[in-house]
Structures are given as structure tokens and as C-alpha cells.
């Protein structure tokens, strides 16, 4: 016996980003991208795990890191993860203005994160701690820098989405784009939590 499904006839609504089959499969595809991105960060974390005691003549992690800016960056990124989560919540409710508002808040928080991180890196460089100094600093800069580059890319991605949302509103296509962007942003938050724990806090355990 074949019974028509209410989902197929549109009488029972799926969330809009999953409603269209072709858009829905792209969300699964984006998960595959995130999986490969996990591998990039895993190899950088491995490098850091091996190199972090090789400080040569340069500063040790404990001497170099100041927890003030790091906590600021952590709070900014955690909060931005929360705000884009709210954005997706309002997107599923079909409220385009609330979605765009929370996305703008997310972009500002992300910009604050990148700004703090750049300021931190410049401060390190002024102290003579660049990636030429030691194996530890090479591994540190490439790991934290790759994450920062991801966040920077995410900010520009979100800005392009804002233009699309303003022009087209919430359609299955723009909704899928916002949803994959939110997956990307939360993923960066997870990576940051491990940088925060394994690089910064671990550096303070003497």
C-alpha cells in the first residue's frame, strides 16, 4: 500500500532549509567539508603537541600568554555562536529582520574577535616573538592563524549572505546558505575551545 506523505504534499512543514531536496543534500555535503576541516586542525594540533616544548631561545608559553585578551576572545566567540544560533531559530520562524539583526551582531562579535587576535599577534611580534623565533611559535602561529583566517573568511561570507537576504528574503536557497554558515561558525567555536584549552590554558599549567 502506498500512502502519500504529508511532508511531500506540503501539509506538514519541514524546516525551510531542509524543505527542498536539492538544498537539503547540500547541507549534508557541507558536513563532509567540516569533516575534512577537522583533519586540517587535527594535524595542526598534532604539530603543536610535538613542538610546544621546543622554545629555543624564545619565550615559553607561560611567559608569552596573557589570559586577559584570550578570555575576551573566548567570550566574544562563544557569544557570537549563541547569536547565530538565535538567528537560525528566527529563520525557522520566518522572521527575516530578526535573522539579519542577529547576523549583524554575529559579524560585529566576530570582528571584535579578529581585532583582539591581531592586536595580540602584533604585541607578540613587538616582543620579538614571531614565527621565526622557535618551533613552538611557528606551530602556535600556524594553528591560531589558520583559525583566525577561517573566522575572517566567515565574516565576509556573512556579509554576502546579508545582501542576499535583503534582496530575496528567506527562501529555501538563502535559508540553506544561512544554515551552512551557522554550521561553519559553530564549528569554528569548537576549534577555538580546543585552542583555548590545549594551547592557552595548557600553557599556564606549569
Amino acid at each position: 500500500m502506498s500512502v502519500p506523505l504529508a511532508e511531500k504534499t506540503g501539509q506538514h512543514q519541514l524546516p525551510i532549509e531542509f524543505a527542498d531536496e536539492k538544498e537539503s543534500i547540500k547541507i549534508t555535503g557541507f558536513w563532509m567539508f567540516l569533516v575534512t576541516d577537522v583533519l586540517i586542525f587535527a594535524s595542526l594540533f598534532s604539530t603543536y603537541a610535538v613542538m610546544r616544548t621546543s622554545v629555543a631561545m624564545g619565550p615559553t608559553p607561560d611567559q608569552l600568554f596573557h589570559m586577559g585578551p584570550v578570555m575576551l576572545e573566548t567570550i566574544l566567540l562563544l557569544t557570537s555562536s549563541f547569536t547565530i544560533g538565535l538567528g537560525v531559530y528566527f529563520m525557522r520562524k520566518g522572521q527575516v529582520r530578526a535573522l539579519m539583526g542577529w547576523m549583524i551582531v554575529t559579524i560585529l562579535l566576530g570582528a571584535g574577535f579578529v581585532g583582539t587576535e591581531i592586536h595580540d599577534f602584533v604585541t607578540f611580534a613587538q616582543q620579538g616573538a614571531t614565527w621565526h623565533t622557535s618551533a613552538f611559535l611557528s606551530a602556535f602561529d600556524i594553528l591560531v592563524g589558520t583559525h583566525g583566517a577561517h573566522v575572517t573568511f566567515g565574516i565576509f561570507w556573512a556579509i554576502t549572505l546579508l545582501f542576499q537576504l535583503r534582496k530575496r528574503g528567506i527562501t529555501p536557497q538563502t535559508a540553506r546558505k544561512v544554515y551552512t554558515y551557522s554550521l561553519y561558525w559553530h564549528f569554528l567555536d569548537i576549534v577555538w575551545i580546543f585552542i583555548y584549552t590545549f594551547v592557552y590554558l595548557n600553557g599556564k599549567i606549569v
Binding site: M1, V3, P4, L5, A6, E7, K8, T9, Q11, H12
Partner: peptide, 11 residues
């Protein structure tokens, strides 16, 4: 009755 749409939950 047999061809009335049902949700996947019910199916």
C-alpha cells in the same frame, strides 16, 4: 481514507 496524507511520524 487509504490515500489521505499522513505524516512520516504516523507512517
Amino acid at each position: 481514507e487509504a490515500t489521505k496524507p499522513i505524516t512520516a511520524e504516523e507512517a
